[in-house]
Nucleic acid binder design. Structure first.
Lengths: 350, 350
DNA sequence: CTGAAAGCGCTAACAG
DNA sequence: CTGTTAGCGCTTTCAG
């Protein structure tokens, strides 16, 4: 029995809905004409187009995306890889990305690597589904990035250290951190602590560098960073430890807002008043920071994603149109802004 | 000139990286063997497999996803459609979704319809790229849902009213809202206001119904809802209007936390003390609510997404394996929980 | 303006 | 265990 017959017998149709062939038959034209008509080619009579459209509608026809992609050699989709979506930061970045990517006509695929057993394989797989990819920090190693870049897939690194000649977008860290410390020094704080792990993230590393520079500029000693995961619970635990230590710091500079908020909680647990007993600062500019009265550094989370999407799109079209391919690596650093609220010390003037 | 030659002349290769043919040649086997070896079929000698793997690695080969999908008749991907990613709610839901979808072996596509000129077309396009789809409320009309369902694409509705016989997952609204109101009544509040538009979202509608029921149960009159978009700024504006009105309400029950936080701001602007001059409640259980001391109703945002992903996965595999197809529609309602904090009134006992 | 036919790169029968 | 080959559904020449 020829397997063609076999196929006819199988229960599950291999495809949902109609194919271009059925539309063609129904409209009394060839599949080529259907293809043209449906994509507004001007090589089709308005009449024919109408007939084809009617047939397509009647059959509730949608072209098969894989078939289209295979034939066209492109996916009309791009993706973004980030560690996780816990907390507002990555969510905002991804939103900014989706917003412009979709406006630019691409579908967007997302991949959170955190806790994934086989993050590398997942990223590699993703790379095969898109026309371009944004890869954030703390996801996969540089050699994976290199390997993907080697295939010629347009790539943009986000909040991550540059790798060979791949475009990179980051937010400013060092300078604003230094500014923050200068402000804290003005408050008269003397015993500083830094909560966060510079080794775990380029952003945190930058913030710590600025922190250290600011302290040095003021003639203070620079404490070692206190490693801490970037979430509420870790912040609370680390904060409690810091508070219990001797001598207790005057101020703890946290690697992000969630850690800072965790320290807030620890301070409350210990019956300490913020900022008088303990001053606290964060980083990111979350909504929660605002309502907690947390001094922080706002970074343009949404804009980071949006910028990445735009840059990626440029690279993709550049590549397609063969125009000025790879006119030099691009490195963008988006500005951040110190937002002073109550948690860093008393501001009598306000 | 035959177009085969043309092709050879074009600058841009239609495909990045090697094809299965090159790997086959390099490994000295057929493409079928390469395909098998790379997918761990047990119909291949360990030796052969090794040789193929080596060749593939050397060529930095990754199978073309469209080609695979076309041949297999499936995408190994599914998607979720939501209105936007502004604020933590949708982000959490999407995270929960991504988490389990990825664990279950699918790539995930996301689509935010908000502000999209052609949301319907985008959703239809998405539908063509996935093996199954989760559609949230406030995205596209029911007839689009029906149209997609008609193609046989597995579908799950989330935080949205049921449509024909499509599976649906929602969070409990009415009952907990009633419970919330009962608590407020105990506080002695008399003049209630509801901030949010029941017509704009099934969730808000449910909350308003519960609000009304609670008031009725307490023998209070039920005020009309005050329409309000679900974000900070809208909440602040609407809150200001409410505060300026006569008589000023004792308590404003907000459709979500962001609106409530906006009202907080408005109260601060007006110099009113919360909860003594004005009590406020929210809904969702955001991190910011915690730090603002906002009484709210926690809903399992992450779990909503996760549950949707699981249900969708079940439906997809069910369909594929031809097992008990569509064993009745499924409707799940996830529980929510009242979280009392300071904003709803004084709690002397605490 | 329309049709025929050649792929796009891979999977899965089928036949060794 | 491995190779041959027929599609998967659509786009795009190349000829009318």
């Amino acid at each position: 029995m020829p397997h063609v017959a076999m196929k006819a017998l199988s229960k599950q149709p291999r495809r949902r809905g109609a194919t271009i062939y059925e539309v063609a038959r129904r409209a009394g034209v060839s599949i080529a004409t259907v293809s043209r008509a449906l994509r507004d080619s001007d090589l089709v009579t308005p009449e024919t187009r109408a007939r084809v459209r009617a047939a397509a509608e009647a059959l509730n026809f949608t072209p098969s995306r894989p078939a289209r992609s295979l034939a066209e050699g492109r996916h009309a989709a791009n993706g973004i890889v980030f560690p996780h979506l816990v907390g507002p930061y990555y969510a905002e970045v991804v939103l900014g990305y989706e917003q412009v990517a979709a406006d630019l006509g691409s579908s967007v695929l997302i991949l959170a690597t955190h806790g994934r057993r086989d993050a590398e394989a997942a990223v590699l797989d993703l790379a095969g589904r898109v026309d371009g990819l944004v890869i954030m920090g703390r996801t996969v190693d540089d050699d994976i990035v290199r390997r993907i870049a080697a295939t010629g897939l347009p790539l943009v690194l986000l909040a991550r250290n540059p790798v060979s000649d791949v475009d990179t977008i980051q937010a400013e860290n060092e300078q604003t951190a230094q500014e923050l410390v200068a402000h804290l020094v003005e408050h008269g704080h003397r015993r500083f602590a830094f909560l966060g792990d510079p080794a775990a993230s380029p952003d945190v590393a930058g913030r710590y560098r600025g922190f250290a520079a600011g302290l040095r500029a003021a003639g203070h000693a620079v404490p070692e960073p206190v490693p801490c995961a970037l979430d509420l619970d870790a912040g609370r635990a680390a904060g409690a430890a810091l508070i219990a230590g001797t001598p207790r710091p005057d101020v703890v500079v946290c690697a992000n807002d969630e850690v800072a908020l965790g320290v807030f909680t620890a301070a409350a647990d210990a019956g300490l008043a913020v900022p008088d007993d303990l001053a606290i600062t964060g980083w990111d500019g979350l909504m929660a920071a605002r309502f907690a009265g947390l001094t922080t550094v706002e970074q343009p989370m949404r804009e980071l994603g949006a910028t990445a999407a735009r840059l990626l799109h440029d690279r993709i079209t550049e590549r397609t149109s063969g125009a000025t391919p790879g006119r030099g690596v691009r490195r963008e650093v988006l500005p951040t802004r110190l937002v002073v609220r109550a948690s860093c010390g008393s501001h009598p003037g306000r």
